[in-house]
Simulated assay, not measured.
Amino acid sequence: MSQDFTDITGLPEELGLGDDLASSQQRVTISVDTRRYGKPVTVVAGFDPSAVDLAALASTLKRHLAVGGTVAEDRIELQGEHGDRLRAALADEGFTVET
Rank of each mutant, 00 (worst) to 15 (best):
Q26N: 01
L65G: 09
A55Q: 15
D20P: 02
L57A: 03
G16W: 02
M1R: 12
G69M: 00
V71T: 12
Q79A: 13
A56V: 01
D53R: 05
D74I: 01
G18Y: 03
H82I: 11
A66G: 14
T96I: 12
T96S: 13
R27W: 12
G46W: 04
D74Y: 02
A58C: 10
V67E: 08
K62H: 14
A22K: 04
A58W: 04
P49H: 05
R85N: 09
V28W: 07
V28P: 00
K62I: 11
A89M: 11
G16T: 14
G10T: 12
V97Y: 01
D74F: 02
A56W: 07
T99H: 14
P49D: 02
G16E: 02
I8T: 10
L54K: 02
V97S: 00
T29P: 12
E81L: 05
R63K: 15
S24Y: 14
Q25Y: 09
S50T: 06
V44L: 09
S59H: 10
R75Y: 08
T99N: 15
T9Q: 05
T9D: 10
M1H: 11
R87N: 05
E13T: 05
A22G: 04
L57S: 04
T6V: 11
G10N: 09
V97R: 07
P12F: 00
D74E: 04
D53Y: 05
D92I: 00
G83N: 14
A66W: 12
A45C: 02
T34E: 15
I8D: 07
S23E: 02
E98S: 08
A56N: 12
E93F: 13
A45S: 07
L90S: 01
T70C: 13
E81R: 02
A55H: 15
V71L: 07
S24A: 14
S24W: 13
Q25K: 07
S31N: 14
K62W: 13
A55Y: 15
V32P: 10
D84N: 09
A88S: 15
G16N: 03
E73Y: 08
R87A: 10
A22V: 04
T6A: 12
E13V: 04
S23C: 11
R27I: 15
T99A: 15
L57F: 01
D48A: 08
R85F: 08
A51L: 10
E77Y: 05
S50Q: 05
V67P: 00
T99Y: 13
A88W: 11
E93I: 08
M1S: 11
D7K: 00
E81I: 05
A22M: 10
E77Q: 07
F5E: 00
A66D: 15
D19P: 03
E81H: 09
A66E: 15
A89S: 14
A89D: 14
D19Q: 11
A55I: 13
E73C: 05
G18I: 03
D84C: 03
T34F: 13
